[in-house]
Simulated assay, not measured.
Amino acid sequence: MNTKVIDQYIEDLMTKSTAEIPVWNIEKARAGKKSGWDYIDGCMIMALLELYDTSKDEKYLKFADYYEDFRISDDGSIDGFKKEEWNIDSINGGKNLFPLYSLTKKEKYRLALDKLFEQVKDQPRTKEGNFWHKAIYPNQVWLDGLYMGLPFYMEYDASFNGGKNKDDIYSQFFNVEKLMKNPADGLYYHCFDSSKSAFWCDKNTGLCQNYWLRALGWFSMAMLDTLNHAPDKGSDNWNHLKAMFIDLQDAMLRVQDQSGMWYQLPALPDAEGNYLETSGTSIFAYSLLKGLRTGILSDAPNAEKYKEAGIKAFEGICQKYLKTEDGVLSLDGICLVAGLGPENNRRRDGSVAYYLSEPVVKDDAKGVGPFILAYNEYKLIKK
Rank of each mutant, 00 (worst) to 15 (best):
Y306S: 04
Y306W: 04
V337W: 13
A271E: 09
Y321M: 14
R348C: 06
L241E: 05
A267T: 06
P231C: 09
L292I: 14
K242C: 10
Y263G: 04
T278Y: 01
I296T: 15
W238T: 00
S330M: 05
V255Y: 11
G280Y: 08
D349E: 02
N237M: 08
D326S: 14
R293N: 06
G295L: 04
L322K: 09
A230G: 03
G350N: 01
T324S: 11
H240P: 04
E272V: 11
G291Q: 03
R347K: 15
K307A: 13
G333M: 03
S298K: 10
D326G: 05
A303V: 10
T294V: 15
E277K: 01
I283T: 09
C335V: 09
Y354M: 02
V352L: 08
R254G: 07
D270F: 11
F284S: 03
Q249M: 15
A338Q: 07
A267R: 10
Y354N: 02
Y355K: 10
A243K: 15
C318N: 11
C318L: 13
R346F: 09
Y275E: 02
S298H: 05
G316A: 08
A303K: 14
I311S: 11
R254S: 13
L297A: 07
N302E: 14
Y355V: 05
G316W: 12
I311Q: 12
R348Q: 08
V255S: 12
G350Q: 07
A271Q: 03
P342F: 10
I317V: 10
L297R: 01
L331D: 03
H229Y: 14
G234P: 01
V337D: 13
G310F: 11
F245A: 00
K305H: 00
S279Q: 03
R348D: 08
W262M: 11
G234T: 07
Y275D: 04
K323I: 12
E343S: 15
V337Q: 15
A285K: 08
G295Y: 04
Y263A: 00
E308V: 11
L322M: 14
P269M: 08
G291N: 11
H240F: 13
K290M: 12
V352A: 09
A251Y: 11
N239W: 03
H229A: 10
K323R: 14
M261F: 09
Y286F: 07
G341R: 05
G260M: 02
D349R: 00
Y286H: 02
P301H: 12
S298Y: 09
K320I: 03
K290E: 13
E272I: 12
L297T: 01
E277S: 00
L241V: 03
D270I: 09
V352G: 01
N345I: 11
T281M: 09
A267N: 12
Y355S: 02
M244F: 11
I296Y: 13
L340R: 10
N228Y: 08
G333A: 06
V328Q: 02
P342K: 05
G327M: 00
E308N: 04
A271I: 00
K290T: 08
E304C: 02
S298A: 15
L297G: 03
D236L: 14
E277G: 00
Q249A: 12
